[in-house]
Design a protein around this nucleic acid. Structure first.
Length: 269
DNA sequence: AGATGTACCCGGACGC
DNA sequence: TGCGTCCGGGTACATC
């Protein structure tokens, strides 16, 4: 569920808390969250300092001073908490990274994972991903080249991580609503003006979502006022039957390729 | 190439 | 309170 804006919010806030800190210890409650057995994982992580935290698509990358990297994907329902044992959520903890100043708790990792990779393995894992939608390199022309030649449904392309990286089920619907275009439209049916509007909406929606801290419901730490601020600003996602903010028509819910799909039947054509 | 189907995974919400 | 049941949904992969 966490998409680009949620992971970007985590990156911003965690960088303030964790960069420069030393990972004094590791707790592993669920071995399947890892890609190596607990013993070598602990040996390679314990005592390492976090040099930087980066985001790529829906992944976070913790760069360690050893040259190793921790690659995090929260998949569905995964989230994190930064704090102490006293104020942590009463939930099952899959992994915990301890520093002297606090611990980072990984919660709800079912299909999610925290993988320990060297530089070449990391590069290999990230290689198939499409471009970052908010990077300057994603110009209108690049967007046109990547999207306009496709043949499938618009939404299928928006959520395809190899076409463009970081957009998931919620933001695909929000972007299409912002652009006034139905997500179920096929790509060949869209004209250049539609693609230009979609390009602008990708930037507008994702930037706004990042600014307001994404839609995650759990604060990252006690007193976190940023995380989740975009939830109330979602216009269509999970709002079936509610009136469209622009025209008052009830938001529709459908299924497209096995995914939930929300749109305004009046504003989106 | 795109669409469809399925396995993966299990916490927690819900029902009785 | 307690126990059983079932859902969610990104990704990878097989198949048509």
């Amino acid at each position: 569920m966490p998409e680009l804006p949620e992971m970007e919010t985590y990156r911003r806030l965690l960088a303030e808390q964790l960069v420069g800190r030393t990972l004094a210890d590791v707790y592993i409650g669920r071995e399947k969250s890892l890609n190596v057995p607990p013993e070598p994982f602990t040996r390679r992580v314990r005592g390492r300092t976090v040099n930087s935290i980066r985001r790529r698509a829906k992944h976070l990358i913790f760069d360690l001073d050893s040259g190793d990297h921790l690659l995090l994907h929260l998949m569905l329902g995964g989230w994190m908490f930064w704090g102490s044992e006293a104020d942590r959520p009463e939930r099952t903890i899959q992994v915990r990274l301890d520093t002297r100043e606090g611990s980072l708790y990984f919660i709800g990792l079912r299909l999610g994972y925290l993988h320990l990779l060297d530089a070449s393995a990391l590069e290999e894992r990230l290689q198939p991903l499409g471009p970052e939608p908010l990077q300057p390199a994603m110009s209108l022309e690049q967007w046109m080249n990547r999207m306009a030649g496709k043949r499938g449904r618009l939404k299928s392309q928006l959520v395809d991580q190899q076409v463009i990286a970081g957009i998931g089920n919620c933001y695909a619907d929000e972007i299409c609503y912002d652009a006034g275009i139905r997500p179920s439209r096929t790509c060949p049916s869209l004209v250049r003006q539609d693609w230009e509007r979609l390009y602008a909406s990708v930037q507008r929606v994702l930037l706004a979502a990042v600014r307001y801290g994404g839609y995650m419901e759990h604060p990252l730490y006690t007193g976190d006022r940023l995380t989740g601020g975009f939830d109330e600003r979602c216009q269509v996602y999970d709002r079936e039957g509610e009136p469209c903010a622009r025209c008052g028509t009830a938001i529709m819910k459908e299924s497209l390729s096995g995914r939930k799909l929300f749109y305004c039947p009046e504003c989106q054509r």
